[in-house]
C-alpha cells in the first residue's frame, strides 16, 4: 500500500463518518412538518368523516389515522383555552357530535378571525375518534390550519 492510498482511504472514512453524523443529527433534530404545507390525503365534509367513524371505527382508523385530511364544514364553535390555543369545532349545531380541530401554534391566529356559522375548511392530522353517548362522538384533528373557502 502506498502512502497515497492510505491517505485517501483515511480521508474517505472520515468523510463517511462526518456525513452519517450529519444526517443522524439532522434526523434527531427533525421538527414536525407544517401541515399547512402538506397536501391532504383525503378531502371530505365533517358529516362524511363523522359517518365513516360512527359506522365502522376500525376501518376509518385504518384509513384516516395519522393522515393529513382536509375537512369542510360549518363552524359550530371556536374555543380558546387559557394558553390561547384555539379549538375549531365543525359540524351540525343540532348534533352533539363534531369534528374538533386543535390549531397548530403557528396557525393559531387564523382561528381568531372566524365567525360561527361560517363555512370553512380545516387541514390537520387525524388523531382518532372519541365515542361518547353523553357528550357526543368526535373526530379529532391536531396541528390544524384554516383554509378559507
Amino acid at each position: 500500500m502506498t502512502r497515497k492510498t492510505i491517505k485517501y482511504s483515511f480521508g474517505a472514512v472520515v468523510l463517511i463518518i462526518a456525513v452519517s453524523a450529519f444526517f443522524a443529527y439532522k434526523e434527531y433534530n427533525r421538527k414536525q412538518k407544517d401541515v399547512a404545507e402538506l397536501s391532504a390525503a383525503y378531502t371530505l365534509s365533517s358529516d362524511e368523516i363523522l359517518k365513516a367513524f360512527s359506522t365502522d371505527e376500525k376501518a376509518a382508523n385504518l384509513k384516516y389515522l395519522d393522515k393529513v385530511i382536509s375537512i369542510k364544514g360549518i363552524l359550530k364553535s371556536n374555543n380558546k383555552d387559557d394558553e390561547g390555543t384555539y379549538t375549531v369545532v365543525l359540524g351540525d349545531s343540532s348534533s352533539m357530535s363534531s369534528v374538533r380541530c386543535t390549531m397548530d401554534s403557528i396557525h393559531n391566529g387564523e382561528a381568531a378571525l372566524l365567525k360561527t356559522g361560517e363555512s370553512i375548511s380545516v387541514k390537520g392530522v387525524c388523531t382518532g375518534f372519541n365515542a361518547d353517548e353523553m357528550l357526543g362522538s368526535d373526530v379529532i384533528l391536531n396541528r390544524c390550519s384554516i383554509k378559507n373557502n
Binding site: Q32, L65, D66, D81, T85, T87, R100, T102, V125, C126, T127, G128, F129, N130, D132, M134, L135, D138, I140, N142, R143
Partner: peptide, 25 residues
C-alpha cells in the same frame, strides 16, 4: 395532549377521562 375529554359527576364523584394517544405532541 390538548384534546382530553373529561366528565365529572359532582353528585357521585365519578369521573372519566379519554385520551387519544396520537394526539400527544
Amino acid at each position: 395532549n390538548k384534546a382530553v375529554t373529561c366528565v365529572i359527576d359532582i353528585k357521585t364523584g365519578n369521573m372519566q377521562f379519554a385520551v387519544l394517544m396520537k394526539g400527544f405532541e
